[in-house]
């Protein structure tokens, strides 16, 4: 890769465009110009095409139309590395919060009997349709998540996953505990770290935007068991976790473990 520029594509499915905005807002992006060629990035570049081969494909958004199913398949064919970026691409996003409701019912309440020529589907994560090589968590991911992933790719290495919860970073920052001291349903104990406990540092309970920490060890953390001690029900915690984890197949099982532990 030394002799040529790395080819990058940034593709959007159904989302708020926040992951791309985060990427575009990095001052470091100007340093990237010498090292990378942007083949597709509609948000910034009129000369974009989804038909070109790329080395790294960043995909933002949930798969929410039939056209988007075809698009992710095409991106997979043309890309060496596919990175699912942000909560929508990784977990289906907040638009999956209503997963338990029927699409037909959602559709009817919003559009009534009015005719729209496109066919919608329920929002789903990218991984449901294609192989994803790496995931950037968060709503949106932190700038340093992008820098770390891109930096390791550029030097021909591979970024590591974070396998510890927000609580670790929160303790290191010396914040007072929102769950224990204020009794609010802070999802810090069960959420992927990497945000430097951004919200708890503002005295705001974590809503789990980086998704549930995927390594089962953390689920038996004594902090997670505080949910029960503080009188939160399993349903309350589950519903809060579903905001950003609707498509996590292990969610219920994991939350059950917290609430069954020690009974």
């Amino acid at each position: 890769m030394e002799n040529r520029k790395i080819r990058i594509g940034f593709y959007a499915l159904t989302s708020c465009y926040g992951c791309q905005l985060q990427f575009a807002m990095m001052d470091e992006i100007l340093q990237l110009i010498d090292k990378a060629k942007i083949e597709c990035w509609y948000m910034l570049n009129r000369n974009s095409s989804e038909e070109r081969e790329v080395d790294i494909a960043f995909i933002e958004g949930s798969v929410s139309t039939k056209e988007e199913v075809e698009l992710v398949k095409k991106i997979r064919e043309k890309a060496k590395i596919v990175v699912a970026v942000g909560s929508c691409a990784v977990h289906g996003g907040v638009q999956s919060w209503g997963k338990e409701k029927e699409l037909e019912q959602l559709w009817k309440t919003v559009y009534g009997d009015g005719k729209v020529k496109f066919e919608p589907k329920m929002a789903e994560p990218v991984e449901k349709f294609i192989k994803v090589d790496y995931k950037l968590y968060g709503c949106p991911p932190e700038k340093r998540d992008f820098l770390y992933a891109l930096g390791t790719f550029l030097v021909g290495s591979w970024p590591e996953d974070i396998d510890y919860p927000v609580c670790v970073e929160c303790r290191l920052r010396g914040n007072s505990c929102i769950l224990i001291e204020k009794g609010e349903p802070c999802l810090g104990p069960v959420t992927v770290a990497g945000c430097d406990a951004r919200c708890p540092a503002y005295s705001v309970a974590c809503i789990g935007c980086r998704g549930a920490v995927g390594y089962d060890v953390a689920w038996f953390d004594s902090l997670a068991r505080e949910f029960k001690k503080k009188g939160f029900t399993k349903e309350e915690i589950l519903d809060r976790m579903r905001i950003f984890n609707a498509h996590n197949p292990k969610l219920e099982e994991m939350v059950n473990k917290i609430f069954e532990e020690g009974e």
Binding site: L13, T14, S64, G98, Q105, T109, V110, K121, A123
Partner: peptide, 9 residues
């Protein structure tokens, strides 16, 4: 872009 049903969800 796909619909996201924010009010409904």
């Amino acid at each position: 872009e796909g619909p996201r049903f924010f009010e409904a969800i």
